[in-house]
Structure formats: structure tokens, C-alpha cells
Design a protein around this nucleic acid. Structure first.
Lengths: 204, 204
DNA sequence: TTTAAAACTAAACAAATGTTTAATATTATT
DNA sequence: AATAATATTAAACATTTGTTTAGTTTTAAA
């Protein structure tokens, strides 16, 4: 594998587990099995390594829902279903990177980085917004608060998956319960949010 | 003011802005206007200072909804309204501390601390759970997924307030918009979630 | 007023941090 | 095969980290 890629993978892993400040370049080097100096050789600095990761994933995530928005076959609520499942899927699998982004967002330093991260997260937001807007204008949906509705969608999933410890406690599950590997939980969230969105969006 | 209190206040402020690892004891000492050694003198270590903060607030937040649960005058949905406004109020004001707790939760070290934090957050969870359960059993509410419903309540508010940058972008507001000081936003969230909970909980 | 405990300080401590250096090895080019 | 560019290394660098020490001042009790 590419050595730069190896470093990035180790860095994502460790940043997500212990945070940016909590992870030393020596930790990363050890995990990646390379010399510490290689990090500065390839990326310039620890901070630029972090920025590389953000850019690396940014290009990876762009425009997922483009064709969905323009699809004329599906109803608004059917499109929402697809978005919901897609969002859940991404939160469950690409978990590490989401962790890093949200934690950095919650800090007050590196404001330019926060801008970049927000923009990445905003891509999905805009897609969802478009679909709800369309549903409202063609009379399928009620006139809901669009921005807060999509916040509910993202917030519900995110809150439950911020911490395995909290997730277990909320759901009343034992220590052995591993949220991120649990298919039942995935299905349960999917059914719940689809239901919630029907209650909230569709006219009675 | 009590000197221990001064240290705790500075620590909360800085931990919430820059994170636990990102804040040095010298930062805290400078902000509190005291000698670095006083932190270890009073608290023993940086880590124990952190734990003190958690305990300090834990005792502060206990049993807020006790009497609300046993109230026979109010309907289930009226109780939910009170819980919603209370939760919003706390998120907007006691913001710093919530920031710290959630960020620590998202990390994988200090597992015993995560347990403690989860337990604090769980107190509200249990109260809300009781109220929804009661509403279901007396026929006022539909048979919803209780745990996920309260996750929606907490998650929506929390997601929007994790980051001022993201919040502004989601809502399409200018740089000058300060989410945490905005009364309009507070009202907007309140109206929205009350509405959402009515759609979701009440029988049609 | 003497004495003991508590509060506080400046300085030093060892360990860990991100980064750079200078030397060596590897790879690619001519 | 000689040369140049790239990759890799171990060691050293200066800072910063949390903590401790040893000494001083302040406060309270006798």
C-alpha cells in the first residue's frame, strides 16, 4: 500500500479514538510502522496531516444525492427513505471520520478548519433540503421547518452514535452490546426515523 | 470568591473551548490568575481536576424532573412541552459544560469517566422515558419507540448547537449570527420540537 | 504572642511533544 | 555504471507538558 495512505489510515484511527491533541505523531508513526520523521517529510506538519485527511475525505463524499434530487419516478417520502438509509449506513461504517469531524467542530481553535469541515457536512444537508423543499412545493409535505427537520434526521442518528457507552445506557443494553456492529440497531433506527418523518412531513 | 471555584470556572471555560488535552494547566492557572502549583495543591492532578468538575456539576443537575413525573394535573404532552423548554434552556445556558461532557464521551480513553458522564446525561433520559411511558400506558400517546424518541429530542438540540459554524451554515445565517445568544433561535427550536413531538406522539 | 497549620510562590524536574538535521539507503534517470 | 533525486533513518533540537520541591507568607488557634 501507499505509505502516505498508511499514515493517513493510522492517523484517522488514532485521531478518532483519542482526539487530535491526544494523539502524538509518535503514536501515529508506531501504528503505521514508519519513522516519525516521515510524517513531516510527507505532510510537513501534524496539522497539515490533519488537513490532508479532511481534504482526502471531502473529495470522496461529494455529490452523493445528485441524481436522487432530479429523479421524477420517486415520491418525496420515498426519496427521504433513501436518504435516511444512506445516512445511517454512512454513520455506521465511516464512523471514525465522522467522529473526528464532529469533535473538531466542537472546539474553538482552527477556525478555517471548522469552515472546511462544516462545508463537507453541509453537502448532504443541502441535498436533503432540496428534497423537502420540493415535497412542500408540490403539496406532498406539510410546511415544516425545513432546516430543523433535517437537523432532527442527522441529530438523532448522530446523538445515538456519539458514544457507545451512552448509546448502551440509553437503550438499556449490556456492556457486551456493540452499537456500531449491530444490524438490529441499524434497522431499528431506520424504521423509527422513516416513521417519524412520515408523521412529521406527510399531511394527515 | 472561593479559589477552588475560580480554578474550576476557568477550567470549564478552557476545556470547553480547546478540549481537555488542548488545555494546559498553565493556561488554566493564567486564566484563573493563580500559581500553577495551586492546581495540584487543591486537586492533586489535572485529571482529578477534570473529575471534580464532572462531580461538581453532577450533584447540581440531579432530579430536576422528579415532581414533574408525579404531577397529575398536566397531560403527557404538556409535560413534554416543559421538558423540551427545560432542555433547550439548559443547552443554551450551561453550554460549556455540555460541550465538555459530549466531547469526552466521544473519545475512547478514560472509560470510567465516560461511565460517570453517561450517568449524568442519563438522569434526564430516564425522566423523559417515564413520561413517555406513562403517556403510552394511559392511551394519550401512540406506541412509539421510546428510547429513540428521546434521542430525537436531545439529538436535534444538541446537533444544532455542537458548533456555531455548522449551525450558521445549516440555517443559512451570516457570520455575525451568534446561535447561543439568539432568542429567536431558542423559540424556533422550541416551537419546532413541540410540533414534532405532537406529530409523533399524539394519536391522529 | 507564640505556634502550627494552611495557602501560596518561584524554580526545578523529568518526560513528552512536534520538528529538524545530517547521514545513509533506495530508486530512477542518464 | 555513474549520477541525481527520492525515501528512510537515528539522533538531536527546543518547547511544552504535568508535577514536585523547598521555601515563604498568610491565617488561625493556643
Amino acid at each position: 500500500m501507499d505509505k502516505k495512505e498508511t499514515i493517513i489510515n493510522s492517523a484517522i484511527e488514532l485521531f478518532s479514538l483519542k482526539g487530535y491533541e491526544g494523539t502524538s505523531v509518535r503514536d501515529i508513526a508506531a501504528d503505521a510502522g514508519i519513522n516519525v520523521a516521515m510524517i513531516n517529510y510527507y505532510f510537513g506538519s501534524k496539522e497539515k496531516l490533519f488537513e490532508s485527511i479532511v481534504e482526502h475525505r471531502a473529495s470522496f463524499l461529494k455529490g452523493v444525492f445528485e441524481e436522487l434530487i432530479n429523479n421524477k419516478q420517486l415520491s418525496g417520502i420515498e426519496k427521504m427513505d433513501i436518504i435516511i438509509d444512506n445516512t445511517i449506513e454512512r454513520k455506521f461504517s465511516g464512523l471514525n471520520f465522522h467522529h473526528i469531524m464532529h469533535r473538531e467542530l466542537a472546539l474553538q481553535h482552527r477556525p478555517q478548519l471548522k469552515e472546511a469541515i462544516s462545508d463537507i457536512l453541509l453537502r448532504n444537508v443541502t441535498s436533503i433540503k432540496n428534497i423537502i423543499e420540493e415535497g412542500i412545493s408540490n403539496g406532498e409535505f406539510k410546511q415544516v421547518d425545513i432546516e430543523l427537520t433535517l437537523t432532527t434526521l442527522l441529530g438523532t442518528i448522530h446523538y445515538l452514535l456519539t458514544s457507545d457507552t451512552l448509546c448502551r445506557k440509553i437503550l438499556g443494553k449490556p456492556k457486551s452490546f456493540k452499537p456500531y456492529q449491530n444490524k438490529n440497531l441499524k434497522d431499528r433506527i431506520s424504521i423509527y426515523i422513516k416513521n417519524l418523518m412520515r408523521d412529521h412531513l406527510l399531511k394527515k
